[in-house]
Design a protein around this nucleic acid. Structure first.
Lengths: 249, 249
DNA sequence: TGTCGATGTCAATGCCGTTGACAAGGGTGC
DNA sequence: GCACCCTTGTCAACGGCATTGACATCGACA
């Protein structure tokens, strides 16, 4: 079935305009999900983008969730690819760089389609491309000195942390500008006009806090840095603990 | 205006059944937002819960966003209160316990109303009750040895991390059971049936990973732990750096 | 008593996801 | 070549959603 659809895509059948295919629909949907896409993914908008009836999409995807899941798979695939391109092929000893690049890649590919980030939210897809990447990541942590189980836990923490933060950022960036401004105003009022006598510390750090409000990326990088410091500590502990007994399995 | 509404609330006017007030609406809304509430907050459901016409709510809240913001303020207020009850009144030296309790309290009060967590998502409210709590938190970090600005950055990291993770969990828990099952099945297929030859590490850690899939709370606690280890490192560094110059301001 | 503002009701609007009935068209078997 | 069917696209409709405007009600106050 998949093959037949692809065949149709290659030969435009020379009849109607560009027959709808899974791929062409996903492309159009990704266009709508981009930051410039307008902030909403609906069937009517999708139909307009494709020059076809909105309900035609239902011939290729069971429902919206099905479509969103496919978009999510494309997105994580791109994230994995992004990370692979920036990392050596085999496992490396620089676990910190490895984890940083992985996290930033996931984040970048999601933020290129904020709408997907929001809709995918808590969904998990089982994309095969991702699996090898996970195995590699765990192996890097394991070679760094962490027992296997702990390395796996660490991977899970990193991924959840990254996905949650990314979704958090995407949700805010996809608010209409008026609402965003309202929120920013709330921050400014809250932290900019505090009486120094009652809130000396907040008063002094207000400039930095408002600065951080505008820069989600900076906050994420800081969190990631602190988190990785914690991982470093764990690695040290694991090495010290297993020092007398040699390399643990 | 606020006073008049409250007055009406106290004297039920003895005419119609329980006049609608801001408070009664918020109460009903919170009931709908609880985990048992049905997973959706809509005007029609709210109207039914109140025994009134759905659109009557518009006399008390400009629109849904206004309502959600009010619910959010209640929620963070409860979170702050929860934390305050579990912590000493004045600043303490146990910064780690302080941060842990704060994070867990925020998380707990949001997860008691997952719908609010989802809808509030990236919104920021300027609730005055929260401000004192923030000042205290920064002071705890400062007393632990962090410069003021760094302490503020640390507060920001903790809050964003906690809110993002909480929202992430709430989003998943508010999926309809069928979808949740589908996701869990995806995980099981992905990590349970991996060929040991190709994915030795994933194969060994699969049981732990599936266990973690079911327990968001555990993942959050682990992330928080690792993060706080990173904070500890920063505190140590700050202390070492300022050791020769005495207590920094 | 009459007026006004605040509150509740009702009907209607427009967008959303989704469904079912129907039409067109090409591939397959005769 | 013909009939058939399966896939694909179209159209109209449904129920749910947030929101709005016109109307009714009722208490307060002059």
């Amino acid at each position: 079935m998949e093959a037949r659809v692809a065949e149709q895509a290659e030969r435009p059948t020379s009849k109607r305009r560009a027959a709808l295919t899974r791929e062409s629909i996903l492309e159009a949907a990704l266009r709508l999900c981009s930051p410039e896409g307008g902030g909403q993914l609906t069937f009517s908008r999708l139909g307009k983008e494709l020059g076809a009836d909105p309900t035609a999409v239902y011939r290729h995807f069971r429902d919206k969730d099905d479509l969103v899941l496919a978009l999510t798979e494309l997105t994580v695939a791109e994230g994995v690819e992004l990370a692979r391109a920036a990392l050596p092929d085999g496992p490396s000893d620089d676990w910190r760089a490895w984890l940083t690049v992985t996290a930033e890649s996931i984040r970048a590919s999601y933020l290129a389609r904020p709408v997907v980030a929001i809709l995918a939210a808590a969904r998990t897809t089982a994309s095969p491309a991702e699996t090898r990447s996970v195995e590699l990541l765990i192996s890097v942590l394991h070679r760094a000195g962490l027992p296997v189980i702990e390395a796996a836990e660490c991977y899970r923490q990193l991924v959840d942390l990254t996905l949650a933060m990314t979704q958090y950022t995407a949700a805010f960036s996809s608010l209409d500008p008026a609402t965003q401004a309202k929120d920013e105003a709330a921050w400014a009022v809250k932290y900019g006009m505090l009486p120094e006598a009652e809130f000396p510390l907040l008063h002094r750090s207000a400039p930095r806090l408002t600065e951080l409000f505008r820069d989600d990326g900076e906050v994420f990088r800081m969190i990631l840095g602190t988190f990785l410091d914690g991982v470093a500590l764990r690695i040290d502990r694991a090495r010290d603990g297993s020092a007398g007994a040699g390399r643990s399995a």
